[in-house]
Design a protein around this nucleic acid. Sequence first.
DNA 1: TTTCAATTGATACCACGTATCATTTACGTC
DNA 2: GACGTAAATGATACGTGGTATCAATTGAAA
Lengths: 148, 148
Amino acid sequence: MGMLARIIDPDEWLIALRENGCRVTDVQEMLVRILAHAESPLSAEQAWEAARQIRPETGRATVYRTVEKLEGLKLLRRIHGYQGCSHFMPTLPEPMMLFICLVCGRADYLDSQPLDDLIHQSEQASGHHITESRLQLFGTCAICQQNR
Amino acid sequence: MGMLARIIDPDEWLIALRENGCRVTDVQEMLVRILAHAESPLSAEQAWEAARQIRPETGRATVYRTVEKLEGLKLLRRIHGYQGCSHFMPTLPEPMMLFICLVCGRADYLDSQPLDDLIHQSEQASGHHITESRLQLFGTCAICQQNR
DNA sequence: TTTCAATTGATACCACGTATCATTTACGTC
DNA sequence: GACGTAAATGATACGTGGTATCAATTGAAA
Protein backbone atom coordinates (compact mmCIF):
# COMPACT_ATOMS: atom_id res chain seq x y z
CA MET A 1 0.00 0.00 0.00
CA GLY A 2 1.53 3.28 -1.07
CA MET A 3 1.01 6.91 -0.46
CA LEU A 4 -2.12 7.23 -2.55
CA ALA A 5 -4.07 4.69 -0.54
CA ARG A 6 -4.19 7.16 2.30
CA ILE A 7 -5.55 9.92 0.12
CA ILE A 8 -7.88 8.30 -2.43
CA ASP A 9 -11.08 6.78 -1.04
CA PRO A 10 -12.99 4.46 -3.40
CA ASP A 11 -16.21 5.02 -1.46
CA GLU A 12 -16.12 8.68 -2.35
CA TRP A 13 -15.92 7.72 -6.01
CA LEU A 14 -19.07 5.64 -5.58
CA ILE A 15 -20.80 8.59 -3.96
CA ALA A 16 -19.69 10.84 -6.81
CA LEU A 17 -21.05 8.35 -9.33
CA ARG A 18 -24.46 8.26 -7.60
CA GLU A 19 -24.53 12.03 -7.35
CA ASN A 20 -24.14 12.14 -11.13
CA GLY A 21 -27.12 9.96 -11.86
CA CYS A 22 -25.29 6.67 -12.25
CA ARG A 23 -26.56 3.39 -10.87
CA VAL A 24 -23.62 1.81 -9.13
CA THR A 25 -23.38 -1.90 -9.84
CA ASP A 26 -21.17 -4.55 -8.28
CA VAL A 27 -19.02 -4.50 -11.41
CA GLN A 28 -18.47 -0.77 -11.14
CA GLU A 29 -17.64 -1.02 -7.47
CA MET A 30 -15.01 -3.64 -8.21
CA LEU A 31 -13.54 -1.52 -11.00
CA VAL A 32 -13.48 1.55 -8.79
CA ARG A 33 -11.50 -0.32 -6.16
CA ILE A 34 -9.04 -1.60 -8.72
CA LEU A 35 -8.50 1.82 -10.27
CA ALA A 36 -8.52 3.91 -7.09
CA HIS A 37 -5.76 1.82 -5.54
CA ALA A 38 -3.46 1.77 -8.57
CA GLU A 39 0.03 2.99 -7.76
CA SER A 40 1.24 3.01 -11.32
CA PRO A 41 -0.74 4.08 -14.36
CA LEU A 42 -3.22 1.41 -15.49
CA SER A 43 -4.58 0.99 -19.00
CA ALA A 44 -8.17 -0.07 -19.61
CA GLU A 45 -6.87 -3.42 -20.87
CA GLN A 46 -4.86 -3.88 -17.68
CA ALA A 47 -7.88 -2.94 -15.57
CA TRP A 48 -9.93 -5.47 -17.55
CA GLU A 49 -7.32 -8.14 -16.88
CA ALA A 50 -7.34 -7.36 -13.16
CA ALA A 51 -11.15 -7.40 -13.15
CA ARG A 52 -11.39 -10.81 -14.80
CA GLN A 53 -9.14 -12.32 -12.16
CA ILE A 54 -11.79 -11.38 -9.61
CA ARG A 55 -14.83 -11.83 -11.87
CA PRO A 56 -14.05 -13.67 -15.12
CA GLU A 57 -17.27 -12.80 -16.96
CA THR A 58 -16.51 -9.06 -16.82
CA GLY A 59 -16.97 -7.52 -20.26
CA ARG A 60 -14.43 -5.41 -22.05
CA ALA A 61 -16.83 -2.63 -23.00
CA THR A 62 -17.90 -2.27 -19.38
CA VAL A 63 -14.35 -1.50 -18.32
CA TYR A 64 -13.87 1.07 -21.07
CA ARG A 65 -17.21 2.68 -20.23
CA THR A 66 -16.41 2.88 -16.53
CA VAL A 67 -12.95 4.34 -17.08
CA GLU A 68 -14.42 6.92 -19.44
CA LYS A 69 -17.06 7.83 -16.88
CA LEU A 70 -14.50 8.21 -14.09
CA GLU A 71 -12.29 10.33 -16.32
CA GLY A 72 -15.29 12.52 -17.13
CA LEU A 73 -15.87 13.06 -13.41
CA LYS A 74 -12.15 13.90 -13.07
CA LEU A 75 -11.68 11.07 -10.60
CA LEU A 76 -9.28 9.44 -13.04
CA ARG A 77 -6.63 11.32 -14.94
CA ARG A 78 -5.17 10.23 -18.26
CA ILE A 79 -1.40 9.75 -18.25
CA HIS A 80 0.53 10.65 -21.38
CA GLY A 81 3.47 8.34 -20.90
CA TYR A 82 6.08 6.52 -22.89
CA GLN A 83 4.12 3.37 -23.60
CA GLY A 84 1.07 5.08 -25.05
CA CYS A 85 -1.40 7.63 -23.79
CA SER A 86 -4.10 5.34 -22.49
CA HIS A 87 -3.12 4.84 -18.90
CA PHE A 88 -4.98 6.27 -15.95
CA MET A 89 -4.19 7.38 -12.42
CA PRO A 90 -6.41 8.67 -9.62
CA THR A 91 -6.59 12.45 -9.65
CA LEU A 92 -5.48 14.11 -6.46
CA PRO A 93 -7.88 16.60 -4.87
CA GLU A 94 -5.24 19.34 -5.24
CA PRO A 95 -3.74 19.81 -8.70
CA MET A 96 -0.21 18.49 -8.66
CA MET A 97 2.64 17.66 -11.01
CA LEU A 98 3.12 14.01 -11.80
CA PHE A 99 6.42 12.16 -11.84
CA ILE A 100 6.66 8.66 -13.30
CA CYS A 101 9.63 6.37 -12.74
CA LEU A 102 10.74 4.76 -15.97
CA VAL A 103 12.33 1.86 -14.08
CA CYS A 104 9.61 0.70 -11.67
CA GLY A 105 6.63 2.51 -13.20
CA ARG A 106 5.53 4.01 -9.94
CA ALA A 107 3.94 7.46 -9.94
CA ASP A 108 4.61 10.24 -7.48
CA TYR A 109 2.88 13.56 -7.11
CA LEU A 110 4.93 16.72 -6.55
CA ASP A 111 3.92 20.16 -5.34
CA SER A 112 2.73 22.24 -8.28
CA GLN A 113 2.34 25.67 -6.76
CA PRO A 114 5.48 27.03 -8.46
CA LEU A 115 4.19 25.67 -11.76
CA ASP A 116 0.88 27.42 -11.31
CA ASP A 117 2.77 30.67 -10.76
CA LEU A 118 4.86 30.05 -13.85
CA ILE A 119 1.80 29.39 -15.99
CA HIS A 120 0.21 32.56 -14.72
CA GLN A 121 3.28 34.52 -15.77
CA SER A 122 3.36 32.91 -19.22
CA GLU A 123 -0.30 33.76 -19.65
CA GLN A 124 0.33 37.43 -19.04
CA ALA A 125 3.48 37.55 -21.16
CA SER A 126 1.92 35.87 -24.21
CA GLY A 127 -1.63 37.20 -24.12
CA HIS A 128 -3.02 33.69 -24.45
CA HIS A 129 -5.74 32.53 -22.09
CA ILE A 130 -4.56 29.22 -20.63
CA THR A 131 -7.35 26.92 -19.46
CA GLU A 132 -5.44 23.67 -18.96
CA SER A 133 -1.86 22.63 -18.41
CA ARG A 134 -0.34 19.22 -18.60
CA LEU A 135 3.03 18.60 -17.03
CA GLN A 136 4.51 15.18 -16.56
CA LEU A 137 8.02 14.33 -15.50
CA PHE A 138 9.87 11.12 -16.24
CA GLY A 139 13.06 9.65 -14.87
CA THR A 140 14.40 7.37 -12.13
CA CYS A 141 12.86 7.53 -8.69
CA ALA A 142 14.92 7.86 -5.53
CA ILE A 143 14.48 4.18 -4.62
CA CYS A 144 15.42 2.83 -8.04
CA GLN A 145 18.54 4.97 -8.03
CA GLN A 146 19.76 3.22 -4.87
CA ASN A 147 19.00 -0.25 -6.25
CA ARG A 148 21.43 0.20 -9.13
CA MET B 1 3.29 31.79 -43.21
CA GLY B 2 3.71 32.00 -39.48
CA MET B 3 6.45 32.34 -36.99
CA LEU B 4 7.86 28.86 -37.39
CA ALA B 5 8.59 29.26 -41.11
CA ARG B 6 11.35 31.65 -40.24
CA ILE B 7 12.96 29.26 -37.79
CA ILE B 8 12.50 25.76 -39.22
CA ASP B 9 14.42 25.03 -42.42
CA PRO B 10 13.35 21.88 -44.32
CA ASP B 11 16.73 21.71 -46.06
CA GLU B 12 18.42 21.20 -42.72
CA TRP B 13 16.13 18.27 -42.07
CA LEU B 14 17.26 16.72 -45.35
CA ILE B 15 20.89 17.24 -44.35
CA ALA B 16 20.21 15.64 -40.97
CA LEU B 17 18.60 12.67 -42.71
CA ARG B 18 21.61 12.17 -44.96
CA GLU B 19 23.98 12.51 -42.04
CA ASN B 20 22.13 9.64 -40.39
CA GLY B 21 22.60 7.25 -43.28
CA CYS B 22 19.25 7.79 -44.94
CA ARG B 23 18.85 8.04 -48.70
CA VAL B 24 16.62 11.03 -49.25
CA THR B 25 13.97 10.40 -51.86
CA ASP B 26 11.58 12.79 -53.57
CA VAL B 27 8.81 11.44 -51.41
CA GLN B 28 10.72 12.17 -48.23
CA GLU B 29 11.58 15.64 -49.41
CA MET B 30 7.93 16.36 -50.05
CA LEU B 31 6.93 15.01 -46.65
CA VAL B 32 9.64 17.02 -44.92
CA ARG B 33 8.34 20.21 -46.51
CA ILE B 34 4.79 19.42 -45.47
CA LEU B 35 5.76 18.63 -41.89
CA ALA B 36 8.35 21.34 -41.36
CA HIS B 37 5.91 24.05 -42.37
CA ALA B 38 2.99 22.86 -40.26
CA GLU B 39 1.66 25.56 -37.97
CA SER B 40 -0.69 23.31 -36.11
CA PRO B 41 -0.03 19.75 -35.02
CA LEU B 42 -0.39 17.27 -37.89
CA SER B 43 -1.21 13.59 -37.58
CA ALA B 44 0.38 11.00 -39.84
CA GLU B 45 -3.00 10.52 -41.52
CA GLN B 46 -3.28 14.26 -42.14
CA ALA B 47 0.26 14.35 -43.53
CA TRP B 48 -0.65 11.43 -45.81
CA GLU B 49 -3.73 13.31 -46.99
CA ALA B 50 -1.64 16.40 -47.74
CA ALA B 51 0.96 14.29 -49.52
CA ARG B 52 -1.59 12.61 -51.78
CA GLN B 53 -2.87 15.97 -52.95
CA ILE B 54 0.60 16.62 -54.33
CA ARG B 55 1.46 13.02 -55.25
CA PRO B 56 -1.56 10.70 -55.22
CA GLU B 57 0.39 7.42 -55.32
CA THR B 58 2.09 8.15 -51.99
CA GLY B 59 1.83 5.13 -49.70
CA ARG B 60 0.53 5.18 -46.17
CA ALA B 61 3.40 3.19 -44.69
CA THR B 62 5.91 5.60 -46.18
CA VAL B 63 4.37 8.51 -44.32
CA TYR B 64 4.35 6.62 -41.03
CA ARG B 65 7.96 5.55 -41.59
CA THR B 66 9.10 9.07 -42.38
CA VAL B 67 7.34 10.61 -39.41
CA GLU B 68 8.85 7.99 -37.14
CA LYS B 69 12.30 8.67 -38.53
CA LEU B 70 11.94 12.42 -38.07
CA GLU B 71 10.70 11.92 -34.53
CA GLY B 72 13.70 9.69 -33.85
CA LEU B 73 16.02 12.46 -35.02
CA LYS B 74 14.11 14.86 -32.75
CA LEU B 75 13.18 17.03 -35.72
CA LEU B 76 9.53 16.29 -35.06
CA ARG B 77 7.99 16.31 -31.62
CA ARG B 78 4.90 14.36 -30.62
CA ILE B 79 2.04 16.47 -29.30
CA HIS B 80 -0.12 15.06 -26.55
CA GLY B 81 -3.27 17.00 -27.26
CA TYR B 82 -6.99 16.73 -26.82
CA GLN B 83 -7.77 14.87 -30.02
CA GLY B 84 -5.34 12.03 -29.47
CA CYS B 85 -1.62 11.78 -29.00
CA SER B 86 -0.52 11.20 -32.57
CA HIS B 87 0.08 14.71 -33.81
CA PHE B 88 3.48 16.15 -34.59
CA MET B 89 5.12 19.57 -34.63
CA PRO B 90 8.60 20.69 -35.61
CA THR B 91 10.91 20.73 -32.60
CA LEU B 92 12.50 24.08 -31.92
CA PRO B 93 16.30 24.13 -31.57
CA GLU B 94 15.95 25.41 -27.98
CA PRO B 95 13.68 23.41 -25.67
CA MET B 96 10.51 25.42 -25.15
CA MET B 97 7.06 25.09 -23.69
CA LEU B 98 4.25 24.52 -26.13
CA PHE B 99 0.90 26.30 -26.13
CA ILE B 100 -1.94 25.04 -28.32
CA CYS B 101 -5.05 27.11 -29.04
CA LEU B 102 -8.18 25.01 -28.65
CA VAL B 103 -10.11 27.32 -31.00
CA CYS B 104 -7.85 27.67 -34.06
CA GLY B 105 -5.45 24.80 -33.37
CA ARG B 106 -2.38 26.92 -33.85
CA ALA B 107 0.72 26.20 -31.78
CA ASP B 108 2.97 28.72 -30.10
CA TYR B 109 6.24 28.21 -28.32
CA LEU B 110 6.92 29.99 -25.04
CA ASP B 111 10.13 30.55 -23.14
CA SER B 112 10.83 27.56 -20.91
CA GLN B 113 13.78 28.74 -18.86
CA PRO B 114 11.67 29.24 -15.71
CA LEU B 115 10.28 25.73 -16.19
CA ASP B 116 13.76 24.28 -16.41
CA ASP B 117 14.60 25.97 -13.11
CA LEU B 118 11.43 24.63 -11.54
CA ILE B 119 12.15 21.09 -12.66
CA HIS B 120 15.64 21.34 -11.25
CA GLN B 121 14.20 22.38 -7.91
CA SER B 122 11.66 19.55 -7.91
CA GLU B 123 14.44 17.12 -8.67
CA GLN B 124 16.41 18.15 -5.63
CA ALA B 125 13.37 18.29 -3.35
CA SER B 126 12.10 14.81 -4.29
CA GLY B 127 15.31 12.89 -4.80
CA HIS B 128 14.10 11.62 -8.16
CA HIS B 129 16.35 11.91 -11.19
CA ILE B 130 14.31 13.60 -13.92
CA THR B 131 15.42 12.82 -17.47
CA GLU B 132 12.51 14.17 -19.45
CA SER B 133 9.71 16.64 -18.91
CA ARG B 134 6.62 17.22 -20.95
CA LEU B 135 4.66 20.43 -20.52
CA GLN B 136 1.88 21.48 -22.80
CA LEU B 137 -0.54 24.33 -22.30
CA PHE B 138 -4.01 24.63 -23.78
CA GLY B 139 -6.43 27.51 -24.05
CA THR B 140 -7.46 30.40 -26.29
CA CYS B 141 -4.78 32.33 -28.15
CA ALA B 142 -4.61 36.13 -28.10
CA ILE B 143 -6.06 36.42 -31.63
CA CYS B 144 -8.99 34.08 -31.03
CA GLN B 145 -9.87 35.98 -27.86
CA GLN B 146 -10.33 39.17 -29.88
CA ASN B 147 -12.44 37.43 -32.55
CA ARG B 148 -15.10 36.49 -30.02
C1' DT C 1 -43.58 -5.04 -6.05
C1' DT C 2 -43.60 -2.69 -10.06
C1' DT C 3 -41.44 -0.07 -13.46
C1' DC C 4 -38.11 1.91 -16.34
C1' DA C 5 -33.91 3.72 -17.40
C1' DA C 6 -29.11 2.53 -16.71
C1' DT C 7 -25.89 -1.14 -17.05
C1' DT C 8 -24.04 -5.30 -18.88
C1' DG C 9 -21.60 -8.55 -22.11
C1' DA C 10 -21.39 -10.64 -26.69
C1' DT C 11 -20.65 -9.54 -31.20
C1' DA C 12 -19.41 -7.09 -34.96
C1' DC C 13 -17.13 -3.36 -36.41
C1' DC C 14 -13.74 0.56 -37.20
C1' DA C 15 -9.44 3.29 -37.19
C1' DC C 16 -4.85 3.61 -36.64
C1' DG C 17 -0.76 1.63 -37.05
C1' DT C 18 2.65 -2.29 -38.45
C1' DA C 19 4.88 -6.48 -40.86
C1' DT C 20 5.87 -8.42 -45.21
C1' DC C 21 7.76 -8.49 -49.66
C1' DA C 22 8.52 -7.70 -54.50
C1' DT C 23 9.85 -3.55 -56.98
C1' DT C 24 12.13 0.79 -57.37
C1' DT C 25 15.45 4.23 -56.11
C1' DA C 26 19.53 6.81 -54.18
C1' DC C 27 24.19 7.20 -54.11
C1' DG C 28 29.15 5.52 -53.40
C1' DT C 29 32.42 3.31 -56.46
C1' DC C 30 34.38 2.19 -60.64
C1' DG D 1 28.05 7.69 -66.94
C1' DA D 2 27.19 2.78 -65.59
C1' DC D 3 27.07 -0.52 -61.84
C1' DG D 4 25.95 -2.66 -57.49
C1' DT D 5 23.84 -2.69 -53.27
C1' DA D 6 21.42 -1.29 -49.44
C1' DA D 7 17.61 1.72 -48.43
C1' DA D 8 13.07 3.28 -49.62
C1' DT D 9 8.55 2.49 -51.62
C1' DG D 10 3.68 0.95 -52.01
C1' DA D 11 0.31 -2.79 -52.04
C1' DT D 12 -1.53 -6.02 -49.13
C1' DA D 13 -2.61 -8.32 -45.17
C1' DC D 14 -2.63 -8.27 -40.43
C1' DG D 15 -2.99 -6.77 -35.36
C1' DT D 16 -4.56 -4.09 -31.57
C1' DG D 17 -7.05 -0.82 -28.97
C1' DG D 18 -11.28 1.10 -28.78
C1' DT D 19 -16.49 1.75 -30.12
C1' DA D 20 -21.49 0.89 -31.73
C1' DT D 21 -25.27 -2.17 -31.31
C1' DC D 22 -28.66 -4.71 -28.97
C1' DA D 23 -31.02 -8.13 -26.28
C1' DA D 24 -30.88 -9.41 -21.47
C1' DT D 25 -30.15 -7.95 -16.76
C1' DT D 26 -30.17 -4.97 -12.81
C1' DG D 27 -30.54 -0.82 -9.53
C1' DA D 28 -33.44 2.06 -7.20
C1' DA D 29 -37.43 5.30 -6.92
C1' DA D 30 -42.30 5.20 -6.19
